[in-house]
């Protein structure tokens, strides 16, 4: 147990000390990495633990984001209400999507989640009077929770706290009897049904949980950027979450978080060097699929297994 705790304690120290070590810009970048780590982990709950690959996960990210943005800008609602409302709206979106999409499996599920997410995108893009259309909503303020989070470092600690708590919650979910039942469903739906499990209800709950955490990530990302636009809930965003999960390692929670950090870092670094980020991202998809189908965690485990063999 002590061997397991040590890396986590070290990680905690690094995260706390970070603003004292690196310049402000990188504090912002790490904040973004953490937010996307949460987004990717929420998708992993579906892909890795129930075996439902969604191509519409950005819808919940965007629903959370637009909710906090609209409530703050247009209704002047306190952030104490706006942030929970963002998570709630994303959760309700998850309920609706789950009802429609869980009828299907495999490729149909991929397509239906993709199409449903595009509806939400279509509303954000088309309803100019409410959402500002393509221009989005600029001028969203950073919230104040006891202390103002306008400062980069204060907001960073806020995100560390929320993403950390969410990661613990997600870990508890997947290790609970409910989470183990999800794994069983991923392996064989029919067998779990024969054992008396309500497969649909388990998938439904997992879907809704995933939507809620994605909504929280979206709300945090909007607070960080101080604006929201339809790109937040576009298919490209869903696809990026997907590659974060696969690149890190499906069904490990930690892997997708690492994958998210890596993709966000590469995006930042490559975009500063060249205009061709999209091309590089596409190549990352192809290379990952061909050479690291079980992700970085999978590669690491292979490496350890090979070394421990005599």
């Amino acid at each position: 147990m002590r061997r397991l705790l040590l890396p986590w304690a070290l990680a905690a120290i690094v995260f706390v000390a970070l603003p004292y070590i690196v310049p402000d810009y990188y504090v912002g970048l790490v904040t973004k990495m953490l937010i996307f780590a949460l987004f990717a982990m929420s998708l992993d709950l579906m892909i890795g633990y129930v075996g439902l690959a969604s191509l519409g996960h950005a819808a919940f990210f965007g629903l959370g984001g637009y909710t906090v943005g609209l409530l703050g800008l247009k209704a002047h609602v306190s952030e104490w209400i706006a942030l929970p409302a963002g998570v709630l709206v994303a959760t309700l979106g998850g309920v609706l999507f789950a009802f429609l999409a869980l009828r299907a499996r495999g490729s149909y599920f991929l397509m239906i989640t993709l199409a449903l997410a595009q509806v939400v995108w279509g509303i954000a893009f088309g309803w100019r009077t409410l959402t500002g259309g393509d221009d989005g909503l600029p001028g969203i303020k950073r919230p104040t929770f006891f202390i103002s989070l306008a400062d980069q470092t204060a907001f960073y600690y806020f995100v560390v706290l929320l993403v950390g708590l969410s990661a613990i919650a997600l870990t508890m979910i997947v290790r609970s009897p409910f989470g183990l039942a999800l794994l069983g469903i991923r392996e064989s739906e029919t067998r779990m049904r024969a054992l008396g499990f309500n497969v649909w209800r388990h998938q439904f709950v997992a879907f809704v949980f995933a939507a809620a955490f994605a909504g929280l990530a979206g709300a945090l990302f909007v607070y960080q950027n101080k604006f929201v636009n339809p790109a937040f809930l576009h298919v490209v965003m869903s696809a990026e979450a997907l590659i974060m999960v696969i690149l890190g390692g499906v069904g490990t929670l930690l892997g997708p978080a690492i994958g998210a950090g890596l993709i966000i870092f590469l995006e930042d670094f490559i975009s500063s060097q060249t205009q061709r980020w999209l091309l590089i991202l596409g190549i990352i998809y192809v290379v990952t699929t061909l050479f690291a189908p079980r992700g970085l965690i999978g590669l690491y485990r292979d490496f350890v297994a090979r070394r421990s063999k005599p």
Binding site: I47, A53, L55, G106, S107, L110, A239, L242, I243, I246, L278, L279, L281, G282, I283, I284, Y285, V286, T288, T289, P293
Partner: peptide, 15 residues
Amino acid sequence: ELPQTLLTFGFLFII
């Protein structure tokens, strides 16, 4: 289906 989806997504971005 998952690797196939990722591959076609990759090609979508590349193209």
